[in-house]
Design a protein around this nucleic acid. Sequence first.
RNA 1: GCUGUGGUAGUGUAGGGGUUAGCACGGGGGAUUGUGGUUCCCCCGGCCCGGGUUCGAUUCCCGGCCACGGCCCCA
Length: 444
Amino acid sequence: MVSRARGVRDFPPEAMRRRMVLENLLESKASAHGFNRVQTPIFETLDLFTAKSGPGVISQLYAFKDKGERDLTLRPELTAPVMRMIADELRMETKPLRLSYFGQCFRYEEFKTGRYREFFQYGVELIGATGPLAEAEVIALSMDMIDACGLENWYVKIGHVGVLKDILTGLGLSDELLEGQSEPATATAMRFLDKADWDGLSDFFSKNQISKDSLDLLIKLAELEGGKETLSSAREILSKLGIESTNALDELESCVNYVELLSPAIPELQINLCVARGLDYYTGMVFEVHVPALGGEGQVLGGGSYKLLHLFGLPDLDPSCGFGLGFDRIMLALEAQAEASGRAEVVPGELARPSLLAVVPFNVDPSSVLSMVAELRNAGQRVELELKGRKIGKAFSWADGIGADYVVIIGPKDLESGQASVKRLSDGEQFSVSLDSKSILEIL
RNA sequence: GCUGUGGUAGUGUAGGGGUUAGCACGGGGGAUUGUGGUUCCCCCGGCCCGGGUUCGAUUCCCGGCCACGGCCCCA
């Protein structure tokens, strides 16, 4: 037996139908917010991703050489390819650009529930506009999407990397990469903050002659969590720390205010000034959506404002803002929730579709029913034709097996009388109607 | 990178050092040459792979592979 490669999945018809409904749901929201779908190649040149993420990423890529010895790789994410496309194709377009995308990405790493070697990401980028309003637009779209999925028990974490950067540089740490360092001092400190590693941060601060008082205040700031009221607590701490610049906090506050107006249903908004997202290209607002019920892999969406376009020769488009949505994780969360509540419908709207008609030419030349089949299909019905010449009893079993709503039998007697026997499987009621698509459609 | 549990027809399972490896669903056919989702009969189809212990291993041991979890990481 040849089996599936490790870490990848098949999607049989039922799973695939559900996924397509979810994708369409996301797409309709993106479209309503003015975002336009794009698509980039499954593989790219290797340097695209090393440019964005450094040479360290290679170990987690499906990288290969083509027959011309070019270094290529399956894409591990979609942001960099979209940036590349903007540089290659969209320089002349009116800004800002609102782009959305969906597709599979590949990472060579251990897989778990919600984490596969081939996984699917939906994402959007708002390119060429920056600031609280642009950020709020992006967050509002993400909220709209999550809400439309029917997801329950989720929360949003919003932060702004500028707040910590202001504080850390205000305390005397450098955000420049100095000789002999692998990263700027501010980045080191932010890693400690992100992980809530207070001992590590304490050591690091004492090496840099930063006072214990500052450390304590910073920890207090990092542990702030809650709604908008958190912002005024943060302001107090900043002034105690002697930080004068409150630009980042002001921006975050405007952004949150805009989001509240733009977004219909934010279940729980958590302001957390330590959301660092582990990435140094984020420059402003950062946000994440979490579903606690998923456990370890509970982050289903993440994004923020970033500077990446300078890597593609478009520094004037920095910073931009976007997010990526873990399609597989959203699906897992929805399935778990449907299971828990005994709900048959996992993705909203997945059960709504046209009736399925099983058309059974019984002991007659199939030619006599084919044009009617075509008409029914053109009228928007789903029509499946019995192809194996089954006898009546088997034909019904077959129709039942494929989930048909109606069985249309056309046998010799029917042809003779110009009738068709239409049986509704849900209650067994049977109708005799004249043998044409119009009459059949009338009784459905 | 570390680590826990498990692997028996397509699916879900029972069993267990010598069995014809049992059951259910599924699929195919028949009872039934024009009525399904109820019933009856028949058929299809399985012990993850390799090595070891043994007269004999699907069962016990070791390794691998695969699956499912928990950490680390996650552009």
